[in-house]
Design a binder for these strands. Structure first.
Lengths: 143, 143
DNA sequence: ATCCTAATTGAAAAGACTTTTCAATTAGGA
DNA sequence: TCCTAATTGAAAAGTCTTTTCAATTAGGAT
């Protein structure tokens, strides 16, 4: 199921939020690429759709969308963080070190490992954050 | 093998860095707790050892120590990041959501999962970042 | 279709965090 | 003990993010 502007907008509505031009612009920006985008990048891209999209609004919109799990924050190796559209359910990201292309892995084969960790540490495990970095198929061929 | 001030200092030396009071103070701070500390916290704790430890120096020292893998950055759920002493080799952290206590898991049972990811995505996997959050044994008993 | 109200907006300001610059100090080999 | 390059703290600059506030807007009520 690929997210469209319509389905995403619908989700905003369902959570009682208004569907405004600036919010559409943010969705447009995020839909335009699979790479994680910084707030500033989202603003720049979004301005193609809503000319006076403010950076402040991008921050507020991302916060909102993160709450309702429309977007997901991603920590990049260089310390920046970006946002990508979230696919529903529990997923992990594989990020290309070179071009920042992202693939989401749905389904998470980590249950056993987490059980082992719980047993070993005495912690009650409530969540985990995994990001995998590598070189995407394209970038492997570039020296 | 638990790190001591001596072994850590030794490693700084081996990498050609001088062993200064401010650097010792940072190590003292990090040795004093298993929790991830922010630069500001490290400064505050470190000033007990080196009274005029500057925040700038803490940043520089952490950068240095991260390069030679004496410390490791940790992303906390609330967005802050902290630093903890790194144990050598590949480890992951389990962080208590409530008190921020950290346990390192050495040895990483994720090889199979990463192979699966590589096969599925076509990426050449070069690294991964995993943090596990939960409640530590103590905090489970606090409502 | 128009009105109304609360939600939302952009700009400016404030705030937090981090890095750079630079003169003064310090570690540690000569 | 001396010397030199590494290191330091303070101040300034820079970046990123949040708050404030008056103006605008979406969308249900009329």
């Amino acid at each position: 199921m690929t997210a469209t502007l319509e389905t995403l907008a619908q989700q905003l509505r369902e959570h009682g939020h208004k569907l405004t031009q600036p919010r559409c612009a943010v969705l447009h920006a995020l839909l335009s690429t699979a790479k994680p985008l910084s707030p500033a990048e989202i603003q720049a891209l979004g301005q193609g759709f809503c000319a006076d999209l403010g950076l402040v609004t991008v921050y507020r919109t991302l916060e909102l969308m993160e709450e309702i799990e429309l977007v997901r924050p991603v920590h990049l190796a260089d310390g920046c963080h970006g946002y990508v559209l979230a696919t529903p359910g529990h997923t992990h990201h594989v990020i290309c070190e070179r071009c920042h292309a992202v693939i989401e892995i749905s389904g998470c084969g980590m249950g056993d490992f987490l059980n082992f960790v719980a047993e070993r540490t005495g912690y009650r495990i409530t969540g985990h954050w995994l990001e995998i970095s590598g070189l995407c198929a394209d970038c492997q061929h570039i020296p």
